[in-house]
Design a protein around this nucleic acid. Structure first.
Lengths: 180, 180
DNA sequence: GTCTATATCTCGATAGAC
DNA sequence: GTCTATCGAGATATAGAC
């Protein structure tokens, strides 16, 4: 359990935040360094290139997703409800990193695309294990992903709408789970 | 019904394609002009700035969505099935433009965010009109949006998975529709 | 209406001081 | 381990020829 330098983590946090909030275009090394409170030279000591930064974010996602899926697999409410409920952005480490990787994938960065594949497979697998019917499981996963998609678009009406009705949405999940 | 110059449309097509396939970063004026088969000067005759390009894409989305929602409102299969079915990228004008605007919104471009709000409200409204129960309608909309989200991520496993099971997914839509 | 040439700015990355 | 200074590439945008 080596403890990575605090500066390194601050830089990664800043890069993920910029990706999530302002998009790939705004997530430059200059603005990342500024937000992290270090100079460009300081940043480049920890990450030799921009690719190295992106790589580190992808690794962070895979680690966070593995931890989260361990929790999801044993959640009392069941994997489906856990998944849909936590698809709303809450500011957790997984949220932020996942959103950042989605932005990287949107920029056609291959390692990000592959990492998302892995994470998505894991989620569907866990939901299927609980639900049984693979198509009901697929529908539940899509609901969660739709919720994520809406919660990640900057400042929209839909986020508020769906946040307010989360309880009722979870009851729709129950309907998909039961029978058929 | 003024007919806009062919070059202008080709430029917009190229810009949308680049945004969708390669992200905001890659969608530069240089590469847009190259893909459209015009020079940078030619591009700048039709669009005085990059912002003007983005604006035109947003307007195109609003027009395409209005046309599509008119079809959706009277679709024989019902608005819900129509919506979920067409959430899979098919290469239609609406698909391409919507994806492009989502990328612009991810870059925190406010007019894109507002346009998406408008379009999303319209979709949910039409689904609710068919389904009755607003929460079932919300769940159906989220399924469609999840499907869109997966189909727009470049080259993933999930796209294939959900494409293959579209018929069964539509039956899950029916389950959500029928009696709460 | 479309092109070339060019000015200006910002990004990513290197070099070297401290 | 962190900083400043600076270079080359690529981005937006302007000017003006055809």
């Amino acid at each position: 359990m080596s403890r990575p330098p605090a500066a390194r983590e601050k830089i990664l946090d800043a890069y993920c935040d910029l990706l999530r909030r302002d998009g790939e275009r705004a997530a430059t090394m200059d603005s990342t360094a500024a937000l992290a409170g270090v100079s460009k030279g300081g940043l480049l000591y920890h990450f030799k290139s921009k690719d190295a930064l992106a790589e580190a974010v992808v690794e962070r996602l895979l680690a966070a997703a593995e931890r989260d899926q361990a929790v999801m697999a044993t959640a009392e409410e069941g994997a489906s409800r856990y998944f849909v409920r936590t698809s709303l952005q809450s500011g957790s480490d997984l949220d932020t990193t996942y959103s950042a990787v989605v932005r990287l994938a949107a920029g056609a960065y291959e390692p990000a695309v592959r990492a998302l594949d892995t994470v998505h497979r894991g989620w569907l697998e866990l939901i299927q294990r609980e639900v049984g019917d693979p198509h009901a499981a697929g529908a539940i996963m899509l609901m969660g992903e739709g919720l994520y998609y809406h919660s990640t678009l900057p400042g929209t009406w839909s986020r508020g709408t769906f946040v307010e009705s989360l309880d009722e949405l979870l009851r729709q999940v129950d309907r998909l789970k039961s029978g058929s």
